[in-house]
Every structure is written in structure tokens, then in C-alpha cells.
């Protein structure tokens, strides 16, 4: 194959009119597309937008939202902000670890799940909370977490 897989990147760049100031938006969409920000893409958009790759790398590594390693199909963000922490979020991390076998910052081998511990999801009233692919789950208990994860796993089996 002689084609390259940058068609999608090109679409995203086009969407934002190749504007430098849209870098973060562009990176977010790229991350959504690839589930991380691949190195070749950084170089590619660097050339396309006229931003030195070192600068883009700085932006990516500054925001914890961006990842340079592939994330799972389901990205789990477990909140460890003060409110969630007090309500036992660390205990939930342990439950998730048992259930899918990865620790915060890791991805399962089949790229199904990735787990990240975040500062605050802004859902303190629902503490302890987690977000999976944009969906918020609140007032969690170990059993609830097990159920949620098993449901997702079964969805695949169907």
C-alpha cells in the first residue's frame, strides 16, 4: 500500500482551516480519532500548521487530557479529587484493577480498557465518580463498578 493514513488528519486540519490557534481543538479530535496522539501525526500537523513539533509536544505533555500512548476503546477516568477520595475512590481503583487487570495509566492488552486517575471531574455531589467514554457514573460502590465493567465486557461478547 502506498497510501498513507493521514486522510483523517487532513480532514480535521481542513475543518479548522489549518489555523494555528486551533491546535488544541485539532489535537483533541486527533486523539478522539486515534485514541492517542501518534508521533507521525505530531510531525505532520507541525508542518501543516507551521508550528515546531517541540512546541506541540509541549502542549501535549502539559495537558493530562492528551495521551501519547494508545488508550483503550473504553477510557475509564476515575476521580481522585478530595470529595471522591474521602468517599473511598482509592478502594474503587483496587476493584477496577481486580476486574480488568490494569493500574492507572495502563491499557489492557486487547486495547479494550484504559484506566486513568484524574484530579477532579467536577461531579463532587456524585462522589465517588468515574467517567467512561464521556458518560458519568456517580455514587459508586465496589459492586456497582463491577457491574458496570461486566456490562461493558458483555456488550463485546454479544
Amino acid at each position: 500500500m502506498l497510501t498513507r493514513s493521514f486522510d483523517k488528519v487532513e480532514d480535521i486540519l481542513e475543518k479548522y482551516g489549518y489555523r494555528k490557534e486551533m491546535l488544541i481543538k485539532i489535537l483533541l479530535e486527533i486523539q478522539h480519532e486515534y485514541r492517542h496522539i501518534p508521533r507521525e501525526v505530531v510531525n505532520y500537523i507541525g508542518v501543516a500548521l507551521g508550528i515546531p513539533p517541540a512546541k506541540i509536544y509541549g502542549v501535549i505533555t502539559f495537558y493530562s487530557q492528551f495521551s501519547l500512548n494508545p488508550k483503550g476503546e473504553y477510557t475509564i477516568m476515575i476521580c481522585d479529587g478530595t470529595a471522591c477520595h474521602m468517599e473511598g475512590s482509592m478502594n474503587l481503583v483496587k476493584v477496577i484493577e481486580e476486574e480488568i487487570g490494569i493500574r492507572p495509566g495502563e491499557v489492557t492488552q486487547d486495547l479494550k480498557f484504559s484506566l486513568d486517575k484524574v484530579g477532579c471531574l467536577g461531579a463532587c455531589a456524585l462522589a465517588p465518580a468515574m467517567v467512561i467514554n464521556g458518560e458519568v457514573y456517580g455514587k459508586l460502590t465496589p459492586d456497582k463498578v463491577r457491574e458496570i465493567l461486566r456490562n461493558i465486557k458483555e456488550r463485546k461478547a454479544e
Binding site: 515546531p52 517541540a54 512546541k55 509536544y57 509541549g58 505533555t61 502539559f62
Partner: peptide, 8 residues
Amino acid sequence: SAIDFAYR
């Protein structure tokens, strides 16, 4: 711009 700040 071969170098820049990275991480936080």
C-alpha cells in the same frame, strides 16, 4: 524552535 518546555 528545536527545543521547548514539556511536561508540567
